[in-house]
Design a protein around this nucleic acid. Structure first.
Lengths: 290, 290
DNA sequence: TGGAAACTGAAATTATTTCTTCATTTGTGA
DNA sequence: TCACAAATGAAGAAATAATTTCAGTTTCCA
């Protein structure tokens, strides 16, 4: 039964529901700080999980291993596979050198941010936002601040291909009232507002809300004041070993949303993309002929 | 004696010359594929190194450990330190979402891209580019395509704060010749060109090169044709479980570069940022008074 | 070349780990 | 509330690991 390609953690997860209370407690302990927490003796593992050694022995057999030593040697193989990954090696070398390279430090921070953000994020929120974004009747507006404007533009550029009725607000706040004027109830306004929150964003959110628009806010863990008008909020971890905040994780969520919307509306979208290809082709021809 | 910060491998290396023949043989076996090779029982380790168990027991004591279990628990700690590095953790993303949720699949893909990119990337290239970018005499130009334009803009917005003499090329290629006209030898042109490579990019790169500009290209693993004019190239992994390519890792490198440049020119940059703050403040005042 | 010192691993001993048994506890449905 | 099944851990048995002893071997120097 035990597929050779499955990791120990896969096996634990697969059978988790079939485990008893004490075993679940043990399983959690093993998955927490996996796979290192399974490296010690059966006694140590049992103590760490606050269960008895027989519980450990029984569970590993229940999971399909011949016994604790068998279970542990599998873990050793996984540790080996993880550690002999070139990047890990690179990292170990670099950490010997004084002052780790900025690339490594940045990678560490980003990974931490991504992990934390994904832990915090509510899958239901994500799915709801994806659904809202994929309804073509709703007008779709994007707006960002000085730094986040590029993110708004990135999101906009993709959504513009996927669906009609999509608008990017100029980063110049004096022109915003005109956009609000055209919003209808049920339209969506996607706001990016990160740290040094921009005062005008709150006013914009309030005005759009009064027009009946639904508001989605991308902000940081401290939350822009605009969230009080928001139907859905994404709080993203943005800290990096830098004088600037990081937008990497925000971009990650944007791309995931793009894909979620795209795949839920694939029929129409693929048509649109074909048409768009044709238009590009024509443009090129114009140039050559002209 | 044994400095707490010394790794087991350090200890072995330090005392290597004082070891006997069989012990050296064992030491080599341990260092080869370190630290995983020391994970098993004393018997296993002895067998792998083709020495007897007493040799192992004697050597670990000679190295200053209380015994084999002591030696091994030290190794476990090191494995833990290596593995619990955020970069190597790739399981359990959004714990509340099912494993097949787009967020989790995306996270896996991005992680893979980041690892691969970091493995491929040359730290020297990175440092050289950071140095080039931080020389204020060089004019700095950014250009991107339809999708990557937002990345160019993001990079530009930050660099514009950090240093003077920075320009973002319009995404409309018909205006590019005018920019090239103003380029001087030694100026830098940062090009983003990812898949569906845009023909005009190559022409732009060639023209800029003829004017004596140095060219830096951000592209994907298949490489834009513009790289043949490039002084430095970043090849980024861009594949995602999506109809679209992912820009997350590209943004990661951009942010790391921003930080590298910023920290190397902190004195001037901090002055500039203070001045900028003052300007923002004035703008706000204007509005209130006006 | 002889002999002492150092090295090595087989084997015995000791310590620890792993597994099994079984009594107690916990939970569940009649 | 009771009876039964399932779960759990204490305790001991079995297995394995770690250490020590010791005798054979090698090395090195006079």
């Amino acid at each position: 039964m035990s597929n050779a390609s499955k990791t120990v953690s896969d096996v634990i997860n697969d059978q988790f529901e079939a485990l008893t209370r004490a075993e679940k407690q043990l399983a959690k302990s093993l998955l927490d700080n996996y796979p290192v927490s399974g490296l010690g003796s059966i006694t140590t593992v049992a103590e760490n999980a606050r269960v008895s050694t027989p519980t450990v022995a029984r569970m590993v057999q229940k999971l399909g291993f011949k016994g604790y030593p068998d279970f542990q040697s599998r873990l050793h193989q996984e540790v080996e596979a993880t550690i002999s990954n070139p990047l890990t090696k690179h990292d170990r070398w670099a950490s010997n050198a004084p002052g780790t390279h900025i690339l490594n430090r940045f990678a560490d921070a980003i990974m931490g941010n991504l992990r934390q953000t994904l832990t915090d994020i509510d899958a239901a929120t994500f799915d709801n936002v994806a659904t809202l974004l994929s309804e073509p009747k709703r007008g779709l507006y994007f707006v960002g601040g000085r730094i986040t404007g590029a993110l708004a533009e990135y999101f906009f550029t993709h959504m513009q291909v996927i669906r009609p009725n999509t608008t990017l607000l100029s980063s110049n706040s004096s022109s915003w009232p005109q956009y609000v004027l055209n919003m209808n109830p049920g339209d969506l306004l996607v706001i990016f507002d990160i740290r040094r929150y921009e005062q005008e964003m709150v006013s914009l959110a309030a005005a759009a809300r009064r027009r009946g628009a639904e508001i989605i806010v991308f902000t940081d863990q401290w939350a822009s004041p605009a969230v009080k008008y928001a139907k859905h909020t994404f709080r993203v971890q943005i800290e990096a070993p830098s004088a600037w905040d990081s937008s990497v994780v925000t971009l990650f969520i944007i791309e995931a949303l793009i894909e979620a919307v795209q795949s839920s509306t694939w029929d129409e979208t693929s048509e649109r993309m074909k048409t768009l290809e044709g238009l590009f082709e024509q443009t090129r021809l114009f140039r050559k002929l002209g």
